[in-house]
Write a protein that binds this DNA or RNA. Structure first.
Ligand SMILES: [Mn+2]
Ligand SMILES: [Mn+2]
Ligand SMILES: [Zn+2]
Ligand SMILES: [Zn+2]
Lengths: 150, 150
DNA sequence: TGCTATGTAGGAATCATTCCTGTCTAGATA
DNA sequence: TATCTAGACAGGAATGATTCCTACATAGCA
């Protein structure tokens, strides 16, 4: 989803985030992709237009945007942190081979609950569901390989 | 759950894992707790009985046991890796304040599915559900604090 | 009882992320 | 519009969990 600069500014102000060129560029890059990029991916995307931008600014900005609720971190296993500009409730499909992450929007998943009896006294605020498997292109690559994982 | 040394040996051999004192100690410590310890937690637990054990052996062993399917890694956000000796299907409650992780055994959660239409060509092998909230003791600590999270 | 592939200990290396510090600037104020 | 200052930026150093390397030890097999 591509965002107009004004819309970015509106969102930043609504969330009390100071508007700077660096932040707008980082946020635009993140919202403009569905690939759940790493901080370094974003650094590389954004330095094409802003060669002086420091990696530190990318980390700092992602922290600011996350605290403001404009961005979320999506962690897969123990790999490098990946970021998501989509903060509406959704879940993820994760390819165990290539690491691709795709969004799943599904009301049924959003409504998954846990019985009070099983909640062990927790006050549950939210949940997330992760599906693990092989993405379409990794499946194709595996067709003629060993059928061990089907 | 405490495990007899023979049972550990049986499991190792069943999974073609060489039996060593270090591995048995690490695996026993992990299966003996429900706290989802870190590699370093396990290192500290295990060096009480095996002072010569190296941290590297803990990492290496956890890797071996994970590949063998005797252990799983549980990652919470981007914190240090935590390990779980319970490899039966289950899900987790995670305290966003203190980091506590508790098990949830619930068939309904095990059966959560995604429609083919939404699966985007993925061949789904499994899923996990994470609930986030405040654990009982963190809720108590928050009683007299601001009531914002109830 | 030997042989050998594999495991272990200890230390060095890696590298994503955080910390530090000296400018710089967004946005508020007069 | 000029001034002020809390917060942002760049660059570089530090951190720390994890991995890599290597020489010695040993599990399990014949
Ligand atoms: Mn997403
Ligand atoms: Mn568990
Ligand atoms: Zn894939
Ligand atoms: Zn807690």
């Amino acid at each position: 989803m591509t965002l107009h600069p004004q819309e970015i500014e509106v969102r930043f102000r609504r969330h009390a985030v100071r508007v700077t060129r660096q932040r707008a560029a980082i946020y635009a890059a993140l919202v403009g992709t569905s690939s759940h990029p790493t901080a370094d991916d974003l650094y590389r995307m954004v330095t094409r237009q802003h060669p002086a931008m420091s990696r530190n600014t990318v980390y700092y900005t992602l922290g600011v945007l996350r605290k403001a609720g404009l961005v979320q971190e999506v962690n897969v296993g123990h790999e490098v942190a990946r970021f998501d500009g989509n903060v509406t409730m959704h879940h993820h499909l994760i390819c165990v081979q290539c690491g691709r992450i795709e969004d799943v929007m599904d009301q049924e998943l959003d409504q998954v609950k846990i019985s009070n009896r099983r909640a062990k006294g927790f006050h549950v605020l939210g949940h997330r569901v992760e599906f693990h498997g092989y993405c379409e292109s990794c499946r194709e690559g595996r067709r003629d390989a060993s059928p061990s994982h089907g």
